[in-house]
Design a protein around this nucleic acid. Structure first.
Lengths: 106, 106
DNA sequence: TGATACTATTCTGCGATACTATATACTAGT
DNA sequence: ACTAGTATATAGTATCGCAGAATAGTATCA
């Protein structure tokens, strides 16, 4: 799908939070999961800015682990604040989503 | 609903296109319709930037008409390009929306 | 006529976000 | 040595919604 950049704003971060909440993971793998989801054009740099932001806002805990396939990985897990943030994200999504579907059908 | 600004990016413009497609309307009225929809915090300035953009991108036709209640109104109607843009917007929405719901349920 | 309120458009600058492009680093296979 | 794949990092750019204010027209009431 082309030109969905603007529509992903505010949404992609929520996706990353959700993916992390499913279990400890790292930037590169998150990118791949987003691509598998269907957001095929998402690149590492984009995910990196998001994880950096999560880090800055203290929503994740970090553990560095060596990798057999490249440089060390930074594994993320959601902390309590991150979990709360994620829940609030889904609430917002439900709200916006319902309003748009309402508009579409009306 | 608070803090949905980022999530509205790319979405609000689509809403405005949809509202215009329902029938000739003007900025102030569009703002009110968005508020009725549930986006209570949308302000005139926001809608203005959107209509200006639609205008700049030649997606709307414009007619100025006097008002009994204030300064002249600028009425917008979708042209062919605008109609196409709207359809593409809903396609994008369907795509992103389905992916998000997929992620949420999985 | 002056003040106020409501309608209505316009303008500017800002902050947040995703994207582009590139650099750097480590491992494994040929 | 070279390449491909993995992986983090960073600077710069474009876009978008929003805050805040200015401007302007009409109606109403003191």
């Amino acid at each position: 799908m082309e030109n969905i950049t603007e529509m992903l704003k505010g949404v992609l971060e929520g996706c990353v939070l959700e993916i992390i909440s499913r279990g400890e993971t790292y930037g590169y793998e998150i990118t791949q999961q987003l691509r598998e989801l269907g957001f095929t054009d998402v690149v590492e740099g984009t995910v990196y800015t998001i994880t950096m932001r999560l880090e800055k806002n203290n929503l994740v805990d970090i553990k560095k682990k060596p990798s057999t396939k490249g440089p060390p990985r930074k594994f993320y897990t959601l902390n309590a604040a991150g979990q709360e943030h994620l829940e609030f994200f889904w609430e917002k999504w439900e709200f916006v989503s319902s309003k748009l579907n309402e508009l579409k059908l009306k």
